[in-house]
């Protein structure tokens, strides 16, 4: 079963529109939503949770329409926002007591384990935590009620590299359990490269690309050559090019270039940057 299906999702604001966004997140997979600030990542997540009212399209979460008894569906969803949202005066123990009354499947022992694993002081107030600790507490809550779907909005931003690596490992563990799925939005592409099975590039409210990560990294690459060599590459193979008087480089589809052309691998981050430039 698909954990999440979004079809033609549309939301209009005076200065921004999310335009017929379609995505599918199969169970057991991690989907990374990559986009620059203001691309519509947070809007998408809030539409999924029906915090914002969509103007068109449909959203199905764990097989149910997201407007159909959403509080029940939310029992199976773990959410971490950029600013987490836990009141500053609460400590981790108090948060645990509140969540025990919130989630039917709250796992107190699991929560305690996460607090220990993340080295989170139980009686320190949330407002006195570092940004990384705040994010980890949000994750501890999201992972302690047997959620089947995690929705994470910039959950790795602000974390130091060691903490980010730890979070990535925990999310991979989560996704490997049964049919659990993760939708994570970020503009830190390197984290998503490690984590994701599927990747969606979002630019100015539109999906530029939605593919399996391994396919993307296999299909796209860079060609560094002379201007004359570039001219010999079929136009349909070139997604973005940069020509100087001395050399040329181009983002290409491997499947569309002639055999024998030297195509070097591209990182997810570079792929996103080039595609965004092309979409401008």
């Amino acid at each position: 079963m698909n954990a999440l299906e979004i079809k033609d999702l549309t939301k209009h604001y005076p200065d921004f529109s999310l335009d017929r966004l379609s995505l599918t997140l199969p169970g057991g997979c991690v989907l990374g939503l990559i986009g620059e600030n203001g691309a519509g990542k947070t809007t998408t997540l809030r539409l999924i949770l029906d915090m914002l009212h969509r103007d068109g399209g449909s959203i199905t979460i764990l097989g149910k329409d997201n407007r159909e008894n959403l509080p029940l569906t939310k029992q199976d969803i773990g959410v971490v926002f950029d600013e987490v949202g836990i009141p500053g005066c609460l400590n981790a123990l108090q948060v645990g007591k509140i969540m025990a009354l919130t989630y039917k499947n709250w796992d107190s022992r699991g929560y305690q384990d996460f607090l220990k694993r993340f080295s989170l002081p139980e009686k320190k107030r949330f407002q006195d935590y570092s940004r990384g600790m705040k994010m980890k507490l949000g994750l501890a809550v999201a992972l302690s009620h047997k959620a089947r779907l995690l929705l994470l909005d910039e959950a790795t931003s602000g974390l130091d590299p060691v903490a980010r690596d730890q979070v990535v490992d925990i999310l991979l563990d989560f996704a490997r359990q049964g049919d659990n799925a993760v939708l994570i939005s970020s503009h830190i592409v390197s984290d998503l490269e490690k984590l994701c099975d599927y990747v969606a590039f979002l630019h100015k409210g539109k999906i530029m690309l939605y593919e399996e990560k391994d396919f993307l990294l296999g299909e796209y690459g860079m060609v560094h050559c002379t201007k004359e060599q570039l001219d010999a590459i079929p136009r349909e193979a070139i997604l973005h090019k940069k020509v100087t008087p001395y050399s040329a480089e181009a983002l290409v589809k491997r499947s569309a270039v002639q055999s024998g052309t030297q195509v070097s691998p591209i990182s997810m981050e570079d792929l996103f940057i080039y595609m965004s430039k092309e979409a401008e």
Binding site: P71, L72, F81, E83, G85, I86, T102
Partner: peptide, 18 residues
Amino acid sequence: SYDERTKWNSYCAALPFR
């Protein structure tokens, strides 16, 4: 007012409450 300032109102809307 505290709920708004600490973004609890957003977080709360993502929790399983009507």
